[in-house]
Amino acid sequence: MFLAAEEPNAVLPHPSEIILGLVAFLLLLFVISKFVAPRFEKLYAERTAKIEGGIEKAEKAQAEAEAALQQYKAQLAEARAESARIRDDARAEAEQIKEELRAQAQEESARIIAQGQASLEASRAQIVAELRADLGRHAVALASKVVGESLEDDARRRGTVDRFLEELDAVSAPAKN
């Protein structure tokens, strides 16, 4: 048999193609491991650092927000306590003013009542004095007509009038009680 040129095998590639493919693969592997892989590792590390830094910043911001919230709550509680204290002070002051005004009103009322009673007593005394004098004149005139003699003598008239008024007071004193 005559050996003819070998026919290419469809399943197995030619050995030169295998060698050339292997050299190209090794060259590509060298370039990737020397240049590309370190660049990816560097980018990966940077991205990891940014993410971790972002997380730290977020945690720090959250802690600051929590501290601000606690401070706000403390200030709010302090403001509420202050407003309650001010309200209580205002109520106490209002009560004190109310009591002072009530005391002033009572004093003024007592003063007006006392002044009215004093005025009334003075008026009463004046009216009683006028009535006594008037009653004395009428009594003397009536007694003069009844007795038939003149009671013009001042001393006798005063004595008679005073005695009459004393008797009148003695009679009216039990009636008042």
Rank of each mutant, 00 (worst) to 15 (best):
R163M: 13
E78W: 03
E78F: 02
Q96C: 01
L27I: 12
E121L: 12
A24F: 07
E64Q: 14
D89Q: 13
A141H: 03
L165T: 04
L26G: 09
I112C: 00
L101W: 07
Q115N: 01
F30L: 07
D89T: 11
L168F: 13
V128W: 04
A45V: 02
A81T: 04
V147H: 10
P174L: 12
Q71R: 15
S119C: 08
Q71P: 08
Y72D: 03
E7K: 13
S150D: 13
F35R: 08
Q106T: 00
F30Q: 02
S16F: 04
L168D: 02
H138K: 03
A141W: 01
I18F: 00
R102D: 10
L69A: 15
L76S: 03
E6V: 08
R163L: 14
V36H: 06
F2K: 10
D162P: 01
P38L: 06
F2E: 14
A103I: 11
F25N: 02
E99F: 02
E46W: 09
A10W: 04
L3I: 12
A84G: 05
F164T: 01
T48W: 05
E121Q: 13
A49I: 13
E46N: 10
L76T: 01
K57Q: 07
L101F: 06
L142F: 06
T48Q: 10
A143W: 14
Y44H: 15
A170P: 08
V36A: 11
V23W: 00
S83Y: 14
A79H: 06
K34T: 08
E66N: 12
D134F: 12
Q106P: 00
A77K: 13
L76A: 07
G53S: 04
L168I: 07
R39F: 14
E46A: 10
G54Y: 00
L27D: 11
E121T: 14
P15N: 04
E95V: 04
D134T: 10
R39P: 00
S33N: 08
S33C: 06
S83W: 11
E100N: 11
V36G: 06
E167D: 10
R47V: 02
L120R: 03
R102Q: 07
T48A: 10
A5T: 14
Q71N: 13
F25H: 02
E7T: 11
D154M: 07
L3R: 14
G159K: 13
L27H: 12
Q62C: 05
E64P: 12
G116N: 11
A24N: 05
I18E: 00
R124P: 05
L131Q: 15
A122V: 11
A155I: 10
Y44G: 15
A68C: 03
A129Q: 14
K57I: 09
A45G: 00
V36I: 11
L120N: 04
P38T: 06
R163P: 08
E166W: 04
L131F: 06
A133S: 04
K60C: 08
A10C: 02
G116A: 10
E82Q: 13
T160E: 05
E82H: 10
